[in-house]
């Protein structure tokens, strides 16, 4: 059975149909051809598929696409303003918080959601915000550096 989904993604109203069993991640990647959110564990453990759903970071792989109806969703594609990267994206580049890059969109979305809540995150806030994102390359230190740098830039401290 097919369902019609009327949603807003990165500020754009979108209407499309999908099988009822489709996950939000499959809807983004396969129906809308938005490949920025990554498919990895597909069980809600690794965070590569993280999107912001009505202001909160969620795993799109374990969310029903039909739940996007009437919701506002932000994906990695919605962060840059033309050629100008979002401060979180720029901070990941400047601190070298990227290696293979597969987990990066999920991290950047989780960090954006954190910095939307506070621009003075504590060590505990940072750990909580990205504890659902797994990176197998960097060893996490540079990611934490990136989060501090992005927070400082957004708050005008750097």
């Amino acid at each position: 059975m097919s369902v019609t989904i009327n949603t807003k993604i990165n500020g754009q109203p979108i209407s499309a149909s999908a099988e009822a069993s489709t996950s939000l991640l499959e809807f983004l990647r396969d129906t809308l051809e938005m490949k920025g959110s990554k498919l990895c564990c597909n069980t809600g453990e690794c965070g590569a598929c993280t999107v912001i759903y009505n202001g909160r970071p969620i795993n799109s792989c374990v969310t029903l696409a039909a739940d996007a109806n009437g919701a506002e969703i932000t994906t990695i594609e919605g962060l840059a303003d033309g050629d100008k990267l979002h401060p979180v994206q720029q901070a990941f580049i400047d601190t070298g918080a990227v290696q293979c890059g597969y987990c990066t969109p999920g991290y950047i979305i989780s960090v954006k959601a954190l910095l939307d809540r506070t621009t003075k995150p504590t060590a505990e806030d940072i750990e909580e915000a990205v504890s659902g994102n797994i990176c197998r390359c960097t060893g996490y230190n540079k990611i934490v550096d990136a989060i501090h740098l992005a927070a400082d830039r957004i708050a005008g401290r750097a």
Partner: peptide
């Protein structure tokens, strides 16, 4: 309980 993403859902 799991990650922030899961707790949000």
């Amino acid at each position: 309980f799991a990650s922030l993403q899961i707790r949000n859902t």
